[in-house]
């Protein structure tokens, strides 16, 4: 019998809730961010397994993103990363590459996803090594500085656009 993802999510939430309560007392051994990252990892692994069994690709994509964000958070907490904006750029590329690879594993006849995985993982690797030398990340940071001001308005307008066109 397939274990329900809702039950797994329920267990993860109960455990993380208990850890959050403990976090308020001095006996806690995990910080709030660590609890979140471990919860994301704990959700991601069974969700990928269940989605592969059910052939639910939307869930597979979602679970892969959740798992990768969990890893990213864990790295960010435990290691001192100077360029926090640069992480976003690299992470998007690596996460997209991983999702593409998972989609290829789910349906191996679709070689296009393997190609995408290779392209994005390679771009992710290059963004760590080459792009920094080329000054691309500096340019990215400059654009991000401008984007930061209009980001909330863009999000709000996108949300409104989607809401007003929801029945189309």
């Amino acid at each position: 019998m397939m274990i329900s993802l809702k039950k797994i999510t329920g267990i993860i939430l109960i455990v993380s809730g208990l850890l959050f309560v403990l976090e308020s007392f001095p006996i806690s051994f995990l910080s709030a961010n660590e609890i979140i990252s471990y919860s994301l990892l704990a959700f991601g692994i069974p969700a990928v397994y269940i989605s592969l069994n059910l052939g639910n690709r939307a869930l597979l994509v979602f679970a892969s993103i959740v798992f990768m964000i969990g890893i990213l958070l864990l790295i960010q907490i435990n290691y001192e990363i100077i360029d926090t904006r640069g992480i976003v750029f690299v992470s998007i590329l690596l996460i997209t590459g991983s999702i593409s690879f998972m989609l290829f594993l789910e349906n191996t006849s679709q070689k296009i996803f393997l190609l995408l995985a290779v392209v994005f993982l390679l771009l992710g690797y290059l963004s760590v090594t080459m792009f920094k030398k080329m000054g691309l990340l500096i340019l990215s940071n400059k654009i991000a500085n401008y984007a930061e001001d209009i980001w909330p308005i863009a999000l709000l307008l996108t949300g409104l656009f989607l809401f007003l066109n929801r029945k189309k």
Binding site: L13, G17, L18, L22, E23, S24, A32
Partner: peptide
């Protein structure tokens, strides 16, 4: 922000889902 309140809410949602 974490804290006791968030923890209790999470436990509640967790029990509901379970």
């Amino acid at each position: 922000s974490g804290g006791i309140f968030s923890g209790i809410v999470l436990i509640g949602i967790g029990i509901f889902l379970y």
